[in-house]
Amino acid sequence: MTVEGRAQDAKEDPNRNPASKRVIKVLRRAPVHVALFALLFVWLIPTIGLFINSFRSVDSINSTGWWTVLTAPSGLSLDNYRQVLGQQDLGSKFLNSLYITIPATLIPTMIAAFTAYAFAWMKFPGRTWLFLILVALIVIPLQTTFIPIGRFFSNFFGTNINGSFLAVWLAHTAYGLPFAIYLLRNFMGSLPREIFEAAYIDGASPVTAFFRLALPMSVPAIASLVIFQFVFVWNDLLVALIFIGGNTDNQPLTQSLASLVNSFGSGWQYLAAAGFIAMIVPLLVFLSLQRFFVRGISAGSVKG
């Protein structure tokens, strides 16, 4: 019972017995529960609808609403999933998403880790100014870089890498760095100074202090960052559109899903199943690592 509830109950009728007090309290709270349940219902319905539609045939999707299944469950099957992963080739797009996302998460995190350590624990002239530039770079819209980078990639040390994984890896690494450095530097900077001083007195080099002390102690921040960057890249459409473009061999899930939404021709009937396959990975990450996930996403939400 909250302080506030107790105070109000006491004010109205100090002689009421505890059982009826509880009933009064529940009744007083009823509008709160109703409002919350209504909102949560609205928030859940869209995803539940998609989930149910993903098991229905194209005829039933087009003729009746998915909610009819709740009263008369029939015609549900895994056919859409079988089709999507087989004929529609979404299995290979799923792998592309993984090929793009894993290096594009691992590389910026590693570079950010030692850059953040330098910003947090090494002294050099211009440190504050450089870091302020970094803070500014976090929110730079990616659009202001697309045209020059596209031209750069079309003659990247003599070869055209537009459409290749290398192009998106490089782009995501650079785009992810400002926020990654910012997050890790703030965390590493808040580690106790004494630990590093003691290590240096014992003759440890900065390399040892970084690998043996700073990195292991920063695991919570690194976990949040890895999850944020993984989900960000996995969910990305814009960077893939620009740097993978029309090269269908290398397109990630988001890109082929976007073209499925627009096309009423081939594959349209598998849209719900395809959508669910695309969101299953971030949803699993969310459900299993919720604490780190919320922390990472909340911190990184301002990113370009």
């Binding site: 869209p46 969910n235 988001t254 899903l257 939404v261 695309a278």
Partner: peptide
């Protein structure tokens, strides 16, 4: 956790 594209599908 869901991408803009998946939200679009939903």
């Amino acid at each position: 956790a869901i991408s803009g594209v998946c939200a679009a599908v939903i």
